[in-house]
Design a protein around this nucleic acid. Sequence first.
DNA 1: CGTTTAATCAACGTATTAGTTGATCAAGGA
DNA 2: TCCTTGATCAACTAATACGTTGATTAAACG
Lengths: 130, 130
Amino acid sequence: MILSPVSEAHLDRAFAALADPVRRAIIARLSRGAATVNELAEPFEISKQAVSKHIQVLELAGLVSRTRDAQRRPVHLEAARLEAMTAWIDRYRLAAEQRFRSLDAVLERTTQPAIQADATTPITDKEQQS
Amino acid sequence: MILSPVSEAHLDRAFAALADPVRRAIIARLSRGAATVNELAEPFEISKQAVSKHIQVLELAGLVSRTRDAQRRPVHLEAARLEAMTAWIDRYRLAAEQRFRSLDAVLERTTQPAIQADATTPITDKEQQS
DNA sequence: CGTTTAATCAACGTATTAGTTGATCAAGGA
DNA sequence: TCCTTGATCAACTAATACGTTGATTAAACG
C-alpha cells in the first residue's frame, strides 16, 4: 500500500477539519456511502449554508471530494487522507509505547534484580528520526 | 486491549490540538522521551510563553501530562489519547474501505448493468483531488 | 537573605472560525 | 420560457486562537 506524503499544511487542515463535531458526524455518515448536501444537512439544526461550509472545509482538507450529478453534488469520503492521519499519529504513538515498554523492563530489572531471568529486552538507544 | 470511551469534547480538543505544526512537533519530540518546557521551546522561534500555551492546549486535550521535578515540570506524552484518535478515524475509514471493496466486487460481478438493488451507492463517479 | 532559573499569568492586537440572513447561480421539468 | 430544486456566494457578527511583551510565582542555590 503506497501512502503519498502529506504536507504539513495538509495535516493542519485535516486535523482542524476533524476538530468539529458536525464535521465528524458528516464523516461518519459518509463512511456509509456518498450523500448530497441536503441529505447531510438534514440531521443538524444549523442552516444548510453552514453545512455547505463544513463540507468545503472537509474538501479543502482532502477528506472528501465531490462529483456532479445533474444539480446535485454528491460528497464522497476520501479514505486515503484519513489513513495519512492515522499514519502520522501511529508513528509517534508506537515509538512512545515502545519506549515505555523498554523503560518498564528496566524498572523491573532494577527493582527486583533476583527475579530477573530474562535479559532479552533492549534497554538503551532508540532515537533518531526527524 | 480496553479503550476507554472519549467524549466528543475530548475529540474536539485532541484533533484541534494536532492541527498546529508546533504542537505536532512537540508530540514528535515527546515520543522520544519526556522534556521540559525550555527544552521543547528551544527549536522554535516563538517565545517560551507561546510554547507554554501550546503545552497547555495539549494537556487540556489529554495528549500530554506533567509531573513535577523541583522547579521543572517535565511533559510526558499520553499515548492512550493518541490511540483514541486513531480508533475514531479507523472506525470510519475501515467502514468506507470495506464498502468500497464491496462495490468493487459488485462492479466486477455485473459487467452488464443488472438490476440495481441498492441505490444508496452511486456507481458512476471518478475521484480526484490535489 | 538575595539571585538565578523555570515556568506561568495578564493584558493586548490581530487573524481565523462558525454561525447567521439574503441574494444568486445552474440544471431540469412544466 | 418560467418555475422549482440544489447548492453556493456575499456580507456581517461573535467567539476563539496564536502570538506578543511585561509582571509574577516558586524552587534552588550562594
